[in-house]
Design a protein around this nucleic acid. Structure first.
Lengths: 348, 348
DNA sequence: CTGAAAGCGCTTACAG
DNA sequence: CTGAAAGCGCTTACAG
């Protein structure tokens, strides 16, 4: 009774029924008499039988698999993957498992061909896209995906005319919360690390929140404190180094990602400045690292568990023909020690 | 010419050849005349055609997919995944892509059924197992996998009589390096966080290295400084808290994982002790966090890129019928500030 | 409630 | 170098 690779036909023979009945029984079809069904299921279990996914998928045109495309913005092969997306990956895998889907992970280069292939080859029923992309390049690729009738959902803000569905956090509100917090602590010369007019829309939104907080407080923005930056620690370090060298006065930094903020703090430390006494720092994302750096980083948290659930719900909805609405998740400011608030410094 | 879901038959019709020839051409078969082959490939490209993996897999009994099983030792649904394994995940995905395999990620509970199913259902050609497992429980599950003729490779040391293949780092040597380093700095009362006789074999090996370094230096081990611990930051915190409360004298800690070390440092800080002046701390793994905690953690690095390549090579070998030899990777001590060596403290 | 049959889209001996 | 044909292991109308 130890078959190496049992098929539904083998089960049928043993159970004394047709192969069709076995197939129905294993899918819990109410068409099969309960008794028969259970007998068949027991035999399958005893034989360690599992439905051949290739055969089933060929018939049904489904894979029950979601492809998760991670965009490695660093481009290099050695580079660490953005820890925020790594956290998402774990949560997405959990959510997908709950929804009955497997997750196929793929690291992609933003400039490379995106795997339209995943769905076209029936390896996945839909895609989740994760990464801070360059807006313009991104757009064209998304259009290609859409043209190929690929089902996909993007982690990120809903951008006008952007093809496809998306789910993201309210980046503008996050940037606003971060900046308002700094202003409320009495900071007036707040550098912005990560302004890129042509860059990822989430960064632009965070920057917009920064501006809004300034407007609201009647504060002018010193354009010399706005630094463009891709998302990496080294860039944060370099930009703050340049800022210091420029001699421009600043007493706070809002970095549009935690990686940038961590690099910024390192630059401040290396130049002999103290965080938060000399300079307050706020980041964005709340990567696992953020709580461990010294001082622990105040940052805008995006709840990866909720986000992952929403993304999985979204793509499953698309697969099942129920398109999700684009929506925004509320971010939350997590106050730690890097801006001085928790030590009661410079209270208003 | 815009077919929604073109098949090889469609290509054949357009190219004016048989479907069999299309199949051969797309697989770059030398049987097909170069001219014909290229013409067919061009048509396929133009039509955005990709071979249906389900159909191909059904024929060939292959999926070109590796399942990566991550054991979430924390058990909880909220828990963070061990960052070391998350790093491995990224590197494994890269290595697998280079070898032409997709990666299916699955979070598993150690106590749950391991998915014999992945291979039996032809969703994956083989498995990579990642996680610190309890030795005894682990063993039985591995045996079940082996009984089902599943191809798998384990990240971890080769344990006698353990079913299956494995690749891991030389944990004993790592533990030895860590401890010898502490001894060379003049430390004599070195607490060991993570001794578990019944636990994961890697921990036992690290502990063995600790003993070896003591033996070699002619130093006795104070059994009261040996603390059992599962791998989590909170446990490290709690164990060091108890150690402090016990009143036992210690001037160094070797934690068998970075998470434990980070928890240990937090406990030391909370009790008013300075790292490394009062207590030197060394961890194990070199998780991304390690360089960022304060002070930066001296630790034993396991090179995740090399490890990932070896694991992927191993499982691909098994799939292709070339069983790999179990092997050990050399770990490397990364000296940072948590033990005082880099500041020239207590030099011998 | 059950069975016989068609067919999903490939790959690969077999024949030429 | 190419084609006709078989068959991988399922799911699901269709018929009873």
């Amino acid at each position: 009774m130890k078959l190496a690779n049992p098929t539904s036909r083998d089960i049928a023979e043993i159970a004394g029924v047709s192969q069709a009945t076995v197939s129905r029984a294993l899918r819990d079809s109410p068409l099969v008499r309960k008794e028969t069904r259970e007998r068949i299921q027991k035999i399958a279990r005893d034989l360690n039988y599992f439905v051949n996914r290739n055969a089933a998928g060929l018939r049904t045109h489904q894979s029950n698999t979601i492809a998760l495309l991670l965009f490695d913005e660093t481009g290099g092969t050695d580079a660490e993957i953005n820890p925020f997306f790594l956290s998402m990956l774990g949560d997405i895998t959990r959510s997908a498992a709950n929804a009955g889907y497997d997750v196929l992970v793929s690291l992609q280069q933003l400039h490379a061909d995106w795997h339209i292939e995943y769905q076209a080859s029936h390896r996945a029923d839909g895609l989740i896209l994760l990464g801070y992309g360059d807006y313009r390049e991104y757009r064209e690729k998304l259009a290609a995906l859409a043209r190929a009738n690929t089902r996909f959902i993007i982690w990120g803000p809903a951008v006008d005319d952007q093809p496809g569905h998306s789910f993201g956090c309210d980046n503008q509100d996050g940037g606003y919360q971060a900046t308002r917090h700094l202003i409320s602590l009495g900071r007036r010369d707040i550098a912005l690390i990560g302004a890129r007019s042509d860059g990822a829309p989430e960064m632009a939104d965070r920057y917009a929140g920064y501006r809004k907080a300034h407007d609201e407080a009647g504060l002018a923005i010193n354009p010399k404190l706005l630094r463009r930056a891709d998302n990496s620690e080294d860039v944060g370090y370099a930009q703050v180094g340049e800022l210091i060298d420029s001699g421009e006065r600043f007493d706070a930094i809002f970095a549009v990602t935690d990686l940038l903020a961590i690099g910024a703090m390192r630059a401040l430390k290396d130049s002999g400045r103290t965080v938060p006494d000399d300079v307050s720092v706020v980041g964005f994302d709340d990567v696992p690292l953020a709580a461990y750096v010294s001082p622990p980083l105040t940052t805008v948290q995006q709840n990866t568990r909720l986000a992952s659930e929403a993304l999985v719900d979204g793509i499953v909805g698309l697969i099942e023909g129920k398109p999700p609405e684009s929506a925004l998740m509320a971010p939350r400011l997590v106050v730690r020690d890097s801006c001085g608030a928790s030590r009661g410094q410079r209270p208003r």
